[in-house]
């Protein structure tokens, strides 16, 4: 093996320190503009550097605003942007794909003391984050109902499902699905009982993203199937969580929503 080549001299290395010098003040208003820059002809660079600060912060706040429109509508634009600004400074993106940004924003909202009087807000944000993931997920043809009816009843208990790439389940102790829906539509709405627990199914069987409220036990049923557990085990888990679990309604809902892409029955007995 040849010796590792050091391609850049020490002087050059110093000259490549501009990014390390330029960035710290971008998201921290307490730090003055970097010393490596200047205005032309001896001019000051304060307002000039502020253009970059502003571009960075405002564009990232805008990215959060685009991803979480219902959350913004609930708290109002001014509150939302102030909250988003804090989040942008604490947790700037680590990927150039802004569609991936804001994954930890719902947790940030949950811990944000000024939003404590809106305990459902973080869950609404979780649904919105799931909505964007479903929007950009890989395309796949959903499972046809006849694939399921073709399975002999005696082996159905062992059936294992493949989840559609767009499928997400979001569980909430609050009426997050209803609150999401009415605020996302941007229309006037009546009184919502916020304390009613609601679970969301987010899917995109084709090009349109759907957010539906799952029936009792439905979330547990889906989480079990999505984790690769066999059908019987999923049914048991759902019934254990909620005695009102309606298997027929859940199966037809799951097929209609395109939650899965494939089903497989193992040849060797049911271990579940």
């Amino acid at each position: 093996m040849p010796e590792p080549v050091i391609s850049i001299s020490e002087t050059c290395r110093e000259r490549l320190g501009y990014a390390a010098a330029f960035t710290p003040a971008l998201l921290d208003p307490e730090i003055g503009e970097p010393e490596v820059i200047a205005g032309p002809n001896g001019k000051s660079a304060k307002k000039r550097y502020d253009v970059y600060r502003n571009n960075v912060t405002v564009s990232l706040i805008n990215a959060l605003s685009d991803t979480f429109p219902a959350t913004q509508r609930i708290v109002g634009e001014e509150f939302f942007r102030a909250m988003a600004r804090l989040h942008v400074r604490q947790s700037p993106p680590t990927s150039p794909l802004l569609s991936d940004y804001g994954r930890d924003f719902p947790d940030f909202i949950e811990d944000f003391e000024h939003a404590r009087n809106l305990p459902y807000l973080a869950d609404v944000a979780r649904i919105e984050r799931a909505w964007l993931d479903a929007y950009h997920a890989a395309d796949a043809a959903p499972l046809h109902g006849h694939m399921l009816t073709a399975i002999p009843p005696e082996t159905l208990g062992q059936a294992v499902f493949t989840t559609h790439p767009a499928t997400r389940v979001v569980r909430s102790r609050f009426a997050a699905v209803t609150i999401f829906s009415v605020n996302r539509r941007n229309e006037p709405f009546g009184r919502v009982k916020a304390g009613e627990p609601e679970d969301a199914l987010v899917t995109r069987p084709r090009l349109e993203v759907f957010v539906r409220r799952l029936p009792p036990g439905g979330a547990r049923f889906l989480e079990s199937l999505m984790a690769g557990e066999p059908f019987r085990k999923a049914v048991d888990a759902a019934l254990e969580e909620d005695g009102d679990f309606d298997l027929t309604a859940n199966i037809s809902g799951v097929i209609e929503a395109g939650v899965f892409t494939a089903v497989m029955v193992s040849e060797h007995g049911d271990n579940g």
């Binding site: 330029f22 971008l26 970059y52 960075v56 990232l60 700037p92 993106p93 680590t94």
Partner: peptide
């Protein structure tokens, strides 16, 4: 440039024009 270390700044940031940056 837009990324430094692991942070993506979502803006087109400027660079000095030197032999070192030219090579890079």
């Amino acid at each position: 440039w837009a990324t430094h270390d692991t942070t993506y700044f979502n803006d087109l940031l400027p660079l000095p024009y030197t032999q070192a940056t030219l090579a890079r």
